[in-house]
């Protein structure tokens, strides 16, 4: 049962990577990577159940928090980077 859900999440992650590679604007890429992080949390939790190792829940919990921070950090970097250039020109 867990293996089918795991495969579904892997397919989801593949499509998300495709969107991140295609994505016309930088925001499409960040959106895809943000959702990719959600899928990663689900994958880690599912993998913990699949291999019967409950320690994986801690990693999933940590990843859920890191994912949020990284999205905000990338957005901030992009925002202020572009603003700095706009002021120089």
């Amino acid at each position: 049962m867990f293996i089918s859900a795991t495969i579904a999440i892997l397919v989801v992650m593949l499509i998300l990577l495709l969107r991140a590679a295609l994505g016309p604007t930088v925001f499409d890429r960040i959106l895809a990577i943000n959702t990719f992080g959600t899928a990663t949390v689900l994958l880690i939790a599912l993998f913990g159940f699949l291999t019967k190792r409950p320690d994986f829940m801690d990693i999933a919990l940590l990843y859920a928090l890191i994912n949020f921070t990284s999205t905000i950090a990338v957005l901030k970097l992009f925002r202020y980077g572009s603003l700095g250039k706009a002021e120089d020109e």
Binding site: S4, A5, A8, V12, L16, R19, T35, A39
Partner: peptide, 11 residues
């Protein structure tokens, strides 16, 4: 899983 797949299809 189905909703995740539908969501990425929409993406």
């Amino acid at each position: 899983s189905a909703f995740c797949l539908i969501g990425t299809l929409g993406l």
